[in-house]
Design a protein around this nucleic acid. Structure first.
Lengths: 149, 149
DNA sequence: ATTTTTGCTGGCGAAATGCAAGTAATAATT
DNA sequence: AATTATTACTTGCATTTCGCCAGCAAAAAT
């Protein structure tokens, strides 16, 4: 289940890891939608099958993009969190969204186009920063909540 | 063979198109390595199988990322060129390379690390610009060459 | 006229994906 | 304390995609 690198090209090597139908979707769900638990992922719009989800989470953990944690008050529910390596994928996701915005509306007109998209168009660096800050903040909040209550 | 969009999320929608093992590798080969013909691709480091290559080129053409052209002096060799939509993926590729550089060297130490990588680290916007300019220049050159000689 | 190159296509086994059902452990409810 | 519900998976099986290899026709080079 470990990565096979085709060559020493930095572009291709990244794709050897995350160039997959599901991996970046999972990272996006964590970063943008704050999903953490197995159940969170199964309830998503993208509807990933549980066996695939299980395998992909295992893989993401193996390569160090996420870590599996538990809360002291719950021995069952696993919480998957992005590592630095995982958060480092934020700019990749952002460029993908920008590309969608510019080049995909012709064949897929119903792509969302709200104020978040406008923020992203106006200042992608700030948007990336805000996303990462927000992720860290929420992570701290939920971690704290569980250890208190 | 056409795209199935899972939802209206701009992140996921981009991945519905290019979130694949091969598509971005092919785009990278065109942009960075100047590959244009079927044979060029088959001779790459990444060694894509011909049937897959054929299918992927067809798909990339369908979604408008590349176009298939011919030179007046050669009725056999097809030249695949990036469209604006295709060139628009440059920032995505660049962010992937940056991520590799930062986060993949621990599990894949032989990733190339020359002066191009340094240029990329120092100024990714300039790097992207240079890449696109270079692509257009070479495209013009080869197009010109064929119509002359 | 013959050989080589180019751009594919087709067959077939292997791997990845997707759907549905099942399970075991924990947590919540009564 | 007993029952029910939830969570995080696993298993089985059908379908799709991948990947190697061989072949092949049209065009180009010799």
């Amino acid at each position: 289940m470990d990565v096979k690198f085709k060559c020493n090209c930095p572009f291709t090597s990244a794709l050897d890891v995350v160039g997959d139908k599901w991996l970046l979707v999972i990272v996006k769900q964590m970063l943008i939608e704050g999903k953490e638990t197995f159940k969170d992922f199964t309830e998503s719009d993208e509807a990933i099958a549980t066996n695939i989800l299980s395998a992909k989470l295992k893989f993401l953990e193996e390569v160090g993009i996420i870590i599996k944690t538990q809360r002291p008050d719950n021995k069952k529910t696993n919480h998957y969190l992005l590592t630095q390596k995982g958060l480092g994928l934020t700019p990749v996701l952002i460029e993908l969204a920008i590309w969608s915005d510019k080049h995909l509306r012709d064949i897929h007109p119903s792509i969302v186009n709200g104020e978040a998209m406008e923020f992203l168009r106006n200042d992608k660096v700030a948007f990336a920063h805000a996303l990462e800050q927000n992720y860290r903040k929420n992570m701290a909040k939920t971690l704290n909540k569980s250890s208190v209550g």
